[in-house]
């Protein structure tokens, strides 16, 4: 089994209440959405989460042999994220990198690649997932287009271990986004295809699970997926506080579950995005949390007005 040496997360300080967005564009919405500051982007979010994970792992950047980065909101076709996270944490020039994009599932693509690397010749691998979602002002996605990041350090079995994994690739797209254009396709869930992909991945892993993590781009679906496979576990989601944060949200929600999980418990994560789902079962071996837990990141917040939230998003432009 590949060990988990540490984990961490990061959520921006600012929040907008979804009711404030609904007031401008109609409709009704509860909860709130994380808004990045004007000087935050996917690399800075990822670096924050990576540093928290490395501190939790009691490691510095020089211990890192590989960085695998995942995002669905990189505004650059050519630049990459992993190498820049690696440089910022001081991983050295002999670093191996991998960038995973194109689906929120990229977070588990990267985690599985890191697991494989550690099983081979890589001692310590850093997995970083970060997203700053963009949305048009009058789109359905605006209310829940969030921002957040999570990170895992794989290697020694300090915090836990990757116990079992399974994948279910359907090729079904649903939600998609072309270049800088807004989200198209099935922005809200296609129930049948979501349930098919996620239950297909978790079906064989649902026994003996204490904590379930089903990151979602629409509220309430994690519970339905858990119900569909008969999962009897505490569910963890940051959707009501952060919104949908793509690949970043996958490892952010996993961190929220790991914060709560006690030694001896099992956490089951099922990612979902265009293409399918991956399930990863993590056995927790040590009670530990990073210096800032996900709940502390959610609690330490500052509300911004609708107008300020818009100006932060506009400044982001194509330059995130």
């Amino acid at each position: 089994m590949t060990g988990i040496r540490g984990y961490g997360a990061y959520v921006p300080l600012y929040r907008v209440e979804r009711a404030d967005i609904a007031q401008q564009h109609g409709g009704y919405a509860g909860g709130e959405t994380a808004v990045p500051a004007h000087d935050e982007n996917i690399v800075t979010l990822g670096v924050q989460a990576a540093k928290n994970a490395l501190a939790n792992a009691d490691a510095d950047g020089t211990a890192v042999d590989a960085v695998f980065a995942a995002t669905t909101s990189d505004p650059f076709d050519e630049r990459g994220v992993a190498a820049h996270v690696g440089h910022a944490v001081g991983a050295g020039t002999d670093l191996r990198t991998g960038d995973f994009q194109g689906s929120a599932r990229a977070a588990t693509d990267a985690t599985l690649a890191a697991r494989d690397a550690v099983a081979n010749d890589c001692e310590t691998a850093l997995v970083v997932a970060a997203d700053v979602l963009r949305a048009d002002p009058d789109s359905d996605e605006l209310e829940t287009a969030g921002a957040g990041a999570g990170a895992l350090v794989l290697g020694d079995e300090q915090v836990g271990a990757v116990a079992e994994t399974a994948s279910h690739t359907t090729g079904y797209v649903g939600r998609f986004k072309r270049g800088d254009s807004p989200v198209s396709g099935d922005g809200r869930f296609n129930r049948k295809n979501y349930i098919e992909a996620v239950t297909g991945a978790v079906d064989g892993l649902a026994e003996g699970v204490d904590h379930g993590v089903f990151p979602e781009h629409d509220g309430g679906w994690g519970e339905r997926a858990a119900g569909a496979v008969g999962l009897d576990a505490a569910l963890h989601s940051t959707f009501d506080s952060v919104g949908y944060a793509g690949a970043g949200g996958v490892l952010l929600d996993l961190a929220a579950a790991l914060d709560e999980a006690a030694a001896g418990e099992r956490v089951l994560l099922a990612s979902y995005g265009p293409g399918g789902s991956d399930a990863i079962a993590v056995d927790v071996t040590t009670d530990t949390t990073p210096e800032m837990t996900v709940q502390e990141y959610l609690d330490s917040k500052e509300y911004v007005t609708y107008a300020k939230h818009r100006s932060f998003r506009e400044r982001l432009g194509g330059d995130a």
């Binding site: 982007n41 800075t44 650059f76 432009g317 330059d319």
Partner: peptide, 8 residues
């Protein structure tokens, strides 16, 4: 930023 490329 330089031509849109952020300098962090």
């Amino acid at each position: 930023d330089i031509d849109g490329l952020p300098v962090n």
